[in-house]
Simulated scan of single mutants.
Amino acid sequence: MSRVEQVSRPLRFRFEAMNTNVELQLCADKEQAEHAASLVKNWFETQEQRFSRFVADSELNRLNNSSGWMPVSAAMDEVLSLAYGYIGQTEGIFQPGISQALRLSGYNASFEKVLERASYRPSMDIPHLIGAREMESVSRGQERFDYSRPTWIQQEGSRMVHLDPGTELDLGGIVKGWAVERIADWLQKKMRIAAGMINAGGDVQVWGTADHPGWTLEVTSPFAQEQGMSGEVRLRNGAVATSGITRRQWRYNNGRTAHHLIDPRTMEPADTDILQCTVAGKHTSQCEIIAKTVCILGSSEAVKWLNRHYDRHDILWMTREGTVYFRGNTAALAECWPGFDPDHRFSLI
């Protein structure tokens, strides 16, 4: 086999980080690919230690426990700046200030520990979700949480952050996509890897050249028994992110069902008709935010929100009833989303 043939065939690596499975495919020679894979693994592990609310001395927890101004790392400053912008873009549906609500819903430890103590029965016949208890501040009669604004201030040019009193941030809704996007960019620009793919639990960034045939990514159905609802996304350069309420869902002995997508308007797990949403675009973090927002809003509100913002992403979602919706470039649907025949199609405005 020639070196050109060897480099064009991607080498695969897998590891666990950020409480999910990470897959890396690189079109590079063996030595370069192995070196890159070790750096990517280190990158994800470092960001987990920095941003996890389940690591006692993480930078996130230090920030949440701070009073007054706190100096933060360049990575934390960058993620908070991104999050600040996404709050505005999503009209507050993406809101990092939900850490207390996640704890009240039962997600107060890493997910495998939540499942260990819960009577977890992964059923696709999902009942109406009974949400978490009201936030403590609400039960005491205090003013409800203003979900539509950021709950922190960043001092421009100084990497200093000040949280509003009582604020606890959870950045899990953005960090994974950001980490995928940043390390993919580094592999291209610094290591000169011409084609590759990073998949962190459904948050995917791919890149390639005209010599590379492109990437085919499977989109699995949230209904294990409904194979006909599975399909693929095809692209050469760009990002795909999938979010939903079925993978991180738990049920307790009292019958209460909860999941990790908190609706900041109620501070409870979102009561939504959408089980899963997949978004294709250019940037993983943006695709991740859109997928989560669509899931939380539900089908009717999501279409209105996407139209208000003239969003240009391809978006496919599946509902509890088994209905498939697609909003995006309908002319390229068969080419870019093979295997899917949506029940409802919305062209870009």
Rank of each mutant, 00 (worst) to 15 (best):
M1E: 11
R14H: 13
M18I: 11
N21F: 05
N21I: 15
L24M: 11
K30S: 14
H35M: 14
E48P: 10
F51N: 12
R53T: 14
V55S: 11
V55G: 06
S58D: 13
S58F: 08
L60W: 11
N61D: 15
M70N: 05
A75I: 02
M76I: 13
D77P: 09
V79N: 10
V79R: 11
L82N: 10
Y84G: 09
G88T: 15
T90L: 13
Q100M: 12
A101W: 07
A101R: 10
S105E: 05
S110F: 04
S119P: 00
S119N: 14
P122M: 08
S123F: 03
S123C: 06
D125H: 15
E134F: 04
M135L: 15
E143G: 00
V161H: 07
P165D: 11
T167W: 03
T167Q: 00
L169N: 03
D170W: 04
L171Q: 01
K176F: 04
E181F: 06
R182F: 00
A184L: 02
D185N: 08
K189Y: 00
M191C: 01
A200D: 06
G202L: 01
V204R: 08
Q205N: 12
W207V: 07
G214N: 04
W215P: 14
E218H: 11
V219K: 05
Q225E: 14
Q225V: 01
E226G: 01
E226R: 15
G228S: 12
G231W: 01
G238R: 04
A241Y: 01
G244A: 06
W250C: 09
N254R: 05
R256G: 00
T257Q: 04
H260G: 05
I262K: 05
I262P: 07
M267K: 00
P269C: 12
Q276L: 06
Q276F: 00
Q276A: 08
V279Y: 09
A280L: 10
A280W: 02
S285T: 13
Q286N: 07
E288N: 14
A291Q: 03
I296D: 04
L297P: 03
G298F: 03
K304M: 08
W305L: 14
I315E: 01
L316V: 07
W317A: 02
M318A: 02
T319P: 00
E321K: 10
E321Y: 02
E321D: 13
G322T: 09
R327N: 03
N329Q: 07
A332L: 13
L333E: 00
C336A: 08
P338G: 06
R345K: 14
R345N: 04
